[in-house]
Amino acid sequence: MMTEGMFTNYFLPGIWITIQVTVFSALLAVVVAFVIGTLRTSRLWIVRFLSGIYFELFRGTSSLVLMFWLVFAVPLMFRWQFVPMYAGVLALGLTYGAYGSEVVRGALAAVPAAQREAGVALGFTKFQRLRRIEIPQAWPEMVPPFNNLLIELLKGTALVSTIMVADMTYAANLVRIGSNESAPVYTLLLVLYFVFAFVLTRGMRVLERHAKSRIGQAPPRGDSLWSRLTLRSNAGEGTGALTAGGTSR
């Protein structure tokens, strides 16, 4: 039997590790995506070339193999050992950052050239144009594909269980061995990943709407990002952010 004790002793800590791995890898991936993505729009061919190589390299390697390499090969080659969880975060962050760079590059390319010209005419530097004009305008375009990547990343965190990081998948495996109840254990695991993905998607919808309202594309429905993230309904209106998010688009 799978007992309550098994849940609190194994699953709960596993859930916490999965959340941490997801958050840290996502943060790393976003940084990598923006840096590599903007470098790939550079005027200088050498910068485009090198950042393109990064993209191809990490798109073309399996993050599972990369994790193995970081955990098992790096100590032999460099006499330096990763904490396994950080090896997992690094592998996932670098890989999904590469995918994300494609999103950033595409969204930046979709900003009309006239916006760049207006920025030049007003004397902005390249960096100021990116920060104040191009990225803010490209951002709403990035959010939906980023959402897909984030869900992929969440599911990809299950790979860290293979390098002895005790995430939810690892916990599920332990509990199955301990209880011999494959069906409920793996069903619960599926449901957990689904619930997490669902929550992330809702959050990203809110973010998308917020981003669009900030460039005047859609009226904001709540007064602040935070009020839209909370599930409480607005007085009298009877719809929470959950339903509001569901009816967007």
Binding site: A118, Q137, R214, I215
Partner: peptide, 9 residues
């Protein structure tokens, strides 16, 4: 500019 090119954001 002919097309204004204001910053929509």
């Amino acid at each position: 500019f002919q097309q204004f090119n204001l910053f929509p954001n």
